[in-house]
Write a protein that binds this DNA or RNA. Structure first.
Lengths: 157, 157
DNA sequence: AACAGGTCGTTGAGCCTTCAACGACTGGCC
DNA sequence: GGCCAGTCGTTGAAGGCTCAACGACCTGTT
């Protein structure tokens, strides 16, 4: 046989499909609720918040654009746009990268840190209310392990 | 005490945070990969695909707009826009709703069904490759149960 | 030293979603 | 019957993300 026969489609079982759809709906509702809470209480989008969190943990509160993109699994273009908004809000500033002329360092300002400090409690509270406190410790652990496997299987090839 | 003291913030433990972030990154990568596959192979967005799937399962391949919105956890406005695109592609058509003068029924055309049949194998294959086949049955079950709990806790209040 | 291929970050157009406002209709209540 | 609050679906503007293309820079090769 020169042509490999188009193998039969392996559909999902009823159970698998139910799990998959639970994931889809829950994810949609979760992102909606969290984004809405942040926007309402802190005037930040989820993307902006995530960028601020990573910067707050980085040495010197500074991270290269490409690292931000990789860690958050966002496109470079998306990071550029998000950082531009953060910069025009005074929460972040760009600096040239010493070691690489192409690179751009993103540095969190004091105003940015203060904004994050103000936003974090409400966000964490929402993550608890809608996810962490809804699950048992074992459930959250299993969820995390499964998603870690998915994440690792989807290494940016 | 008339004013309830602002209770201390209950931050996430290191483990909880790791699980939460695994979820965030995996979700971002997963939606990216699935959306890209559908767009590339079938010229459909994920939203459009989801609408077609629900219609294909409905009696008469017809569903009210509000039901579509609720089942998919999408806003009504979003459903309107998605259906408008599907309609102008000839995959769907709108009909008045007999029982409710406000309602609009969305009916899947034969072309729509054919388009879904063509798109489904590749999509299912991608869901398998990136999620189902990456996990054990138990892991997928645990993931589904956890997400079902999250979904139910986030009933559109 | 010059080049080729790759990476980094940006840009602007196009698409999708959100948001607020609206008209049409319904159902309960007086 | 008439009102009134609420639901349904739509609309258009605004905002965020994707995509393709680009200039600048780096690295290894010759």
């Amino acid at each position: 046989m020169s042509t490999p026969s188009p193998t039969e489609v392996r559909w999902l079982s009823a159970g698998q499909q139910a799990h998959w759809r639970a994931y889809l709906v829950a994810t949609a509702r979760l992102q909606d609720a969290l984004g809405r809470q942040l926007e309402r209480d802190s005037d930040l989008s989820l993307s902006e918040y995530e960028v601020l969190v990573r910067l707050s943990e980085a040495p010197g509160r500074t991270l290269r654009m490409s690292l931000l993109a990789d860690e958050l699994a966002h496109s470079r273009s998306r990071i550029t746009h998000t950082v531009r908004r953060l910069e025009s809000a005074g929460l972040v500033e760009r600096q040239a990268c010493d070691s690489d002329g192409r690179g751009v360092n993103c540095h969190m300002t004091d105003a940015g840190f203060a904004r994050l400090e103000a936003a974090a409690p409400g966000h964490v509270q929402a993550v608890r209310a809608h996810l962490v406190d809804v699950l048992t410790d074992d459930q959250l652990g299993a969820l995390g392990d499964a998603m870690a496997a998915v994440r690792d299987a989807l290494e940016p090839a």
